[in-house]
Amino acid sequence: MSFLSVRNLTLRLKNGPRLLRRVSLDVAPGEVRGLVGESGAGKSMIGKAILGILPGAVEIAEGEIWLDGTDLLSLPPTERRRRIGATAALIPQDPLTALNPSHRIGPQITDRLVHILGWSRTDATARALDLLAEVHIPDPERVMRNYPHELSGGMRQRILIASAFAAEPKLIVADEPTTALDVTVQKQILRLIAGMQARHQTALLFVTHDLGVVSKVCQRLTVLYSGMVVEDASVTDFFAAPRHAYSAALLAATPKYTDPAAGLLPVPETVTASVRAEVEAFDRAMDSAINERGLADG
């Protein structure tokens, strides 16, 4: 049974275009699923919807989000918030803006344990120190007393990773966790996330636009284009033989260090045009369904 199950999730801007179109995906306990797509494909929106942090202008038009056997969207807001806080966590994209500049590091890790999960301060602090050591932060006691601006980007991302694992969540959403980092740091952070995931056996939804990263970290992946799932496959199958034309083009477009002469291959126009046609057909079908329902109601 999957721990996270997103069913037919459709998001739209209020009175505007659709951002996600009946997206379904599953993450089994302890599994790592990559969520791949170009920018604007809606991959971050899925993570935000799961964690209940959609921007105010976005509404959920349809769908279910099952987390640990409960449909989050059927819960009242307070209950939903607490449920998410206790079972899921986010590793954010930009470590430079994701820590509160006016609080020390310590409370930013321990507060959730104390205030949401009811731990004692001492236990929470001990836990935070352990985790900081686990993400290879030197001198954790001192870092707990530091302010974010006193630490480097790589350090801050490590802290955010430690903080995400603090409450032993069963699901972590990593939203392009290495995009904002230096290339040399990216690799360390990736290895760190993969290592932590393996040790804690956390289900991980890894949002990225980098297929290279997916091949290293993930077991399964979902490819998204324009808010639609174009492929859902195991990583081995996908890299051996992608089924969808767009996936194949995306895979071909990934630069290969072994063959720099090949240069950069864009996804061919014909492929994107055919996917876009699918998207438009979907929208037409949805709209006419809504209209019919509207007429029936009226």
């Binding site: 964690l51 806080g85 930009d94 803006t97 500049p101």
Partner: peptide
């Protein structure tokens, strides 16, 4: 309230009032 650290705090399960007072007010 739209900054990343406030959004991150929301995922931790804090209520709106606490997020305003504790995460946003001082900054």
């Amino acid at each position: 309230m739209n900054l990343d650290y406030v959004t991150l705090a929301r995922t931790k399960g804090y209520g709106e009032t606490r997020v305003i007072l504790r995460e946003a007010l001082r900054n």
